[in-house]
Amino acid sequence: ETIMEVNLLKGPKGLGFSIAGGIGNQHIPGDNSIYITKIIEGGAAQKDGRLQIGDRLLAVNNTNLQDVRHEEAVASLKNTSDMVYLKVAKP
């Protein structure tokens, strides 16, 4: 597993990826991690090219996303300014 830091500039459609996982909404049984499950065509993440489906999202800005509820992860992604710092684990 490789840890990678990505600074992503939000586009008109936001960050351009979808997530799944978290406490109460496990993407993988027994694993509370938050995973990237979709990269949106023409979105910021696709244009940047570094994020991939299956990457594990560890942090957004200063918010640690390990062992959080799905709703908390979504809220932390929404409550960001235009430049967003992401910390991901690549499988």
Rank of each mutant, 00 (worst) to 15 (best):
N32M: 05
Y85Q: 11
E1N: 15
V84T: 12
V74K: 15
I53G: 12
G11I: 06
N32L: 03
L77D: 01
V84R: 01
N7H: 12
I36Y: 00
E41W: 05
I3S: 05
T80Q: 12
A45Y: 01
A75K: 12
V84A: 12
K13N: 04
Q26G: 09
N79Q: 10
G30P: 05
Q26R: 09
I28H: 14
K13E: 13
L8C: 03
L57K: 01
V84C: 09
G30A: 08
E72P: 03
A75I: 09
V68S: 06
S33G: 13
T63W: 05
I40Q: 10
T37Y: 12
S18D: 15
L86T: 02
K78T: 11
G11P: 11
K78L: 11
P91Y: 05
G22C: 02
I28K: 15
N32G: 05
N79C: 12
R50T: 14
Y85N: 10
A44E: 14
I3P: 04
M4W: 05
T80M: 14
Y85W: 13
K78R: 10
G22L: 01
I39P: 01
L15H: 06
N25T: 12
G16W: 00
I36L: 05
N61G: 14
E1Q: 03
L77T: 05
Y85E: 13
V68R: 10
D82M: 08
A59W: 15
N7G: 06
L8H: 01
I36H: 00
K13A: 02
I19D: 00
H70P: 09
L8I: 12
N79A: 14
G11E: 14
S76H: 15
I19Q: 01
I3T: 08
K38I: 04
V6G: 02
L77S: 01
G14S: 05
T37M: 11
R69L: 13
V68P: 04
A73Y: 02
E71P: 09
S18Q: 13
K90T: 08
I28C: 07
K78M: 07
G30H: 14
M83H: 15
I23T: 11
K10Q: 03
D67A: 07
D67G: 13
A44S: 12
G43W: 02
I28L: 14
K78I: 03
S18R: 15
S76T: 11
K78A: 07
T2D: 15
D82T: 04
T63M: 08
K47Q: 08
L51P: 02
D55Q: 15
Y35K: 03
Q52K: 14
T37H: 09
L8A: 02
K78S: 06
A59G: 11
Q52Y: 07
F17E: 00
L65N: 01
V74T: 09
Q26N: 13
P29C: 14
N61D: 14
K38Q: 12
G24L: 10
K38R: 14
I36R: 00
E5T: 10
E72L: 09
Y85P: 12
L77Q: 01
Q66E: 04
A89S: 09
G21M: 02
E41D: 15
T37F: 08
L15G: 02
G24T: 12
L15S: 02
G24W: 07
P91H: 07
H27W: 07
R69S: 15
I23A: 08
R69F: 04
F17M: 08
G43Y: 06
K87W: 02
L51Y: 00
M83I: 10
G43D: 09
D55E: 04
Q66G: 13
N61I: 01
K87T: 04
M83S: 13
E5D: 14
L15Q: 02
Q26F: 05
F17R: 00
H27K: 14
L77N: 00
G21E: 03
G21Y: 02
E72F: 09
R50H: 15
L77Y: 02
K10N: 03
I34T: 03
Q26W: 06
H27C: 05
V88G: 01
